[in-house]
Design a protein around this nucleic acid. Structure first.
Length: 163
DNA sequence: GCCAACGTTGGC
DNA sequence: GCCAACGTTGGC
């Protein structure tokens, strides 16, 4: 099967790309997603080796800040079974887990972010779920061409001197 | 901090 | 099964 591409959102106040870079193996379990549409991507869509844009939300600048990859495919999110955990779900059963996670590992961090504003200015990125009004999904598919474009933009930006 | 967009819940 | 009320997300 062809490699697929994705985007995950994170609030850097909670977990930033620098937190990921500092983590053991530069990887983390992407847990806590409690949305059925996003679950479909985590459980049924994302495959080992798929590449994932890492997006910082609710912060200035909102931007894609790097690339990660799936190093472990969808597995039951452990936090749903932990009563002390913020993401505990009392209705989920171990023999029939409700929520799934993947493990993500950092591939590269852009030296300069590809901002939401700059992406909105690119007609070629029309149709990217992130840019749709009211887009709240924390895990989204990204087309191969859009993925390549954003990564190229990130690399070009990172080669330019700062203003 | 505001509020539009959206998902979920629960009464009926 | 409908839909109003409610809670959350996340750009602005």
């Amino acid at each position: 099967m062809a490699r697929a591409y994705w985007l995950v959102k994170s609030e850097p106040n909670v977990f930033s790309i620098d937190n990921l870079a500092a983590a053991p193996d530069k990887s983390t379990v992407w847990d806590g997603v409690r949305n059925y549409q996003a679950r479909r991507s985590l459980r049924d869509g994302m495959r080992e080796g798929d590449e994932v844009l890492f997006y910082h939300s609710r912060v200035e600048p909102m931007a894609v800040v790097g690339v990660t990859k799936v190093v472990r495919e969808g597995f039951p999110d452990p936090s749903q079974f932990d009563p002390k955990h913020k993401y505990f779900d009392p209705d989920s059963r171990r023999d029939k887990p409700r929520w799934y996670a993947v493990q993500l590992q950092l591939v590269s961090k852009f030296k300069h972010p590809v901002t939401l504003a700059s992406m909105r200015d690119m007609p070629e990125l029309e149709g990217l779920p992130l840019l749709k009004k009211g887009s709240r999904l924390s895990v989204q598919p990204v087309g191969a061409e859009h993925f390549a474009m954003i990564v190229a933009l990130g690399k070009r930006l990172s080669a330019q001197p700062k203003d």
